[in-house]
Design a binder for these strands. Structure first.
Lengths: 237, 237
DNA sequence: ATAGATATTATGTCTATACATAATGAGGTT
DNA sequence: AACCTCATTATGTATAGACATAATATCTAT
């Protein structure tokens, strides 16, 4: 009985966040404005200060406001916008877009680390590495050429590994716990095996993701993920 | 008096976060492991559940664990790693690296929106746009070639604006409140004015950031930020 | 055995209160 | 004016308790 007409649910931090956000995006609280204090907002919204706090903290995370003790919360003049890109496994990425994924090993070799790699990974003169190249296809078409180096001194198991069926990324995920990572994005000119495998003309622009991974201070692997022509990395917010 | 030797400060969510994190990164809690419940951890760490909750929420944010009601918190098998790149104003970026920034307007024009842009920005047949191109220099050397289109129908003030001294980005920040954004990263071949201004050979790989901005559902601006050879966007975590 | 109802569990969130801490500003002293 | 001290203020964080909600496990009737 007595069906509640008004749905008396409490104010959530999402409500507060949305309310504050819309006041910022519609210009009511323009750049430089100092927002009311958490206490005032809590009273205005009829909720606890902790609720307002969480809402404001998340808006700060987004880069829209700056918070400082005693001074309060001010709307940023220049949005230090941060773009967040998800970097999933190639296979997952392709499957998520409804494509069929295929993996093919191109080559493997064990050799002393070349100079440029020693610098990048901080390896010693005697360190040996495993070099793996492989292709990732989406719906039969070339999608990504993977060019990976794995530190065999830090990870001797890699010498036993075969990358016939399973890509080195998957193998590494299983072999090494979570680690520190450096990611670089760049445009380079196509050359060498890259052209053959991805169908780039020599010198054509290639979108490359470079990633170096450390575990407990030791470099584990360095990879260059070269993408087929037309690849874009996008995000929206 | 009585200098406290033990500094009996309470366990913070940072402590808890660090403790959990290190157990994950050192492999104690490997991929697939289900962590103890918040209650159990709270007891173990001698703190309130809310403290553990915040720590775990942040670790989830980082993409290391997955949380589900009733099931609990499990360490992710494949790290859906998300790379976060800060995208500051060019001037700020250059200044932050200790360089000297210089801006130079290249051209401005008002014209009907070309077809490709109408599609991208969702403009009508009659809509006019302002096209601005400009250069950004770091220590005298070309750094970025900006190629921007601004919706003059949605933002008629742009017709009066001069971009002699101030870049269009700065002008837009002042003119438009916070907005919805789509960012795309790609590698393209250098052509046209780009080569002249950035010193790229025709066909050379260019790292381009494309950004489209909406405000209240209306497309405001579309910009292509073309970078000088050798540019890398990097992040580490 | 199978389907549906019910209990259980872990996370999700809100509240009220308390104290910590950084930053600012006011007063007073030199 | 320059410098110190101290009060004030807004945010930062911890806590105990409560209820909400999603997902799973279990129990029951068919």
């Amino acid at each position: 009985m007595t069906p509640d007409v008004t749905a008396p649910s409490r104010t959530t931090y999402r409500d507060v966040r949305a309310a504050i956000l819309s006041r910022i995006t519609d210009g009511t609280w323009g750049a430089g404005t100092i927002l009311p204090s958490e206490m005032e907002l809590a009273e205005a919204f009829g909720c606890a200060r902790a609720t307002v706090n969480r809402a404001m903290r998340e808006i700060e995370e987004m880069g829209l406001v700056e918070r400082k003790r005693k001074s309060g919360t001010r709307v940023r003049a220049a949005p230090v916008r941060q773009a967040r890109f998800e970097i999933p496994l190639v296979g997952d990425e392709i499957a998520a877009n409804g494509g069929t994924y295929r993996y093919a090993l191109v080559s493997t070799a064990t050799l002393p680390a070349p100079d440029w790699l020693r610098g990048r990974m901080g390896l010693g003169a005697g360190d040996r590495v495993v070099h793996v190249t492989a292709m990732h296809y989406a719906d039969g078409a070339p999608h990504q050429f993977e060019d990976r180096w794995i530190n065999a001194t830090a990870l001797p198991e890699v010498l036993e590994a075969s990358f016939d069926k399973q890509g080195p990324t998957e193998w590494l995920i299983a072999a090494v716990p979570y680690s520190e990572v450096e990611i670089g994005l760049m445009a380079v000119a196509a050359e060498g095996p890259l052209c053959d495998h991805l169908g780039h003309a020599p010198g054509a622009p290639v979108f490359r993701v470079e990633r170096t991974t450390w575990w407990q201070g030791q470099a584990i692997t360095h990879v260059r993920l070269n993408h087929a022509p037309g690849y874009r990395m996008t995000t929206r917010y």
